[in-house]
């Protein structure tokens, strides 16, 4: 059993967890404010990866691979992710805001299906996988018995930085206060003069930007992009958010790392367990502690 918990497996788990964390942060934020499981979030992530791919080939002619290029590509991916998220909100979710919650969920499934099938059918993109370019040269370090690449470090740092920034934004800024108000009670927030739709739109913007960033990092870490790449990570990131306590930003991060390490360990043990572990975690959490690890208990108001 020694290899189950080797240093290398922990590094593997952290890397996987970082990608989940980036997706989960956006997921949990949108859920926290709008109470909508945005099934299309995983597809925003896929779009982010494709945007980064396109941006790389667009700018590579002028700038050599390196930090500047990565920065530009990151900005493009985040912008595109944010734009798609806001558009989805405007055209698909906003009109249903005051309809039964589950209609929005079904619409989200529709949006997700639309994005996936459209990307797959649209000839310039197509269903074939593409190799993601090495926007940043890869460096490998040997740490004790483990091999660590600079990507692992970057994924960790970016996830931590975005989480911190987001927590500060939500907890300290006036905008964040408005977001929290909307999350608690839309009508009361409106009475307090908060532009509720504006706040929701902003939330989607942030969520989409995060998904875009995650798309770029996933492209770097697992250099293969395809139209259906967002389904599984999206689902697992959502489970991570539930595990950490949905709506809770540090919780999403914590949940994502737990998921990453749990999945790696399970995979190292047995592939059947590895495939199902995410859903087993989900069901256990929902049965034992539906509010998640860091989630606060909210009374179900009627």
């Amino acid at each position: 059993m020694a290899e189950l918990f080797s240093l290398q497996q922990i590094v593997n788990g952290l890397q996987l967890g970082s990608i989940y964390a980036l997706i989960a942060l956006g997921y949990t934020m949108v859920y926290g404010i709008v109470r909508l499981i945005n099934f299309a979030h995983g597809d925003f992530y896929m779009i982010g990866a494709y945007a980064a791919y396109a941006a790389f080939f667009l700018f590579n002619a002028y700038i050599a691979p390196g930090n500047v290029l990565v920065f530009i590509v990151l900005i493009v991916a985040m912008l595109v992710g944010a734009a798609v998220a806001m558009l989805s909100n405007k055209f698909a979710y906003k009109p249903l805001r005051y309809k039964p919650k589950l209609s929005s969920l079904v619409t989200a499934i529709g949006v997700s299906m639309f994005i996936e099938y459209f990307f797959s059918a649209f000839p310039p993109i197509g269903p074939s996988p593409r190799g993601f370019p090495e926007v940043l040269p890869k460096v490998m370090w040997t740490m004790g018995s483990a091999q660590v690449s600079n990507y692992v470090v970057i994924d960790l740092v970016v996830a931590a930085a975005l989480m911190t920034g987001l927590t500060l934004l939500v907890q300290k800024s006036p905008l964040g206060r408005a977001m929290r108000a909307v999350s608690q009670d839309k009508d009361a927030a409106k009475l307090m003069g908060i532009n509720v739709e504006g706040i929701i739109s902003f939330t989607f913007l942030i969520g989409g930007a995060f998904a875009g960033a995650a798309g770029l990092l996933a492209g770097l870490t697992y250099p293969r992009i395809m139209p259906y790449m967002g389904i599984l990570p999206g689902l697992k990131a959502f489970i991570a958010a539930v595990l950490g306590g949905i709506g809770n930003i540090p919780g999403a991060m914590l949940g994502a790392y737990i998921m990453g390490i749990a999945e790696t360990t399970a995979n190292a043990y047995n592939s059947l367990l590895g495939e199902g572990i995410a859903f087993v975690i989900l069901i256990l959490v929902l049965l034992v502690r539906p509010t998640g690890i860091l989630g606060e208990k909210t009374a179900d108001k009627i």
Partner: peptide, 20 residues
């Protein structure tokens, strides 16, 4: 002799075990 799930992108857990 290691399997992985369909659609996954992270094979490191299985590969670490294999290499060991």
């Amino acid at each position: 002799f290691e399997g992985h799930a369909t659609g996954t992108t992270d094979f490191k857990a299985q590969l670490t075990k294999i290499i060991a």
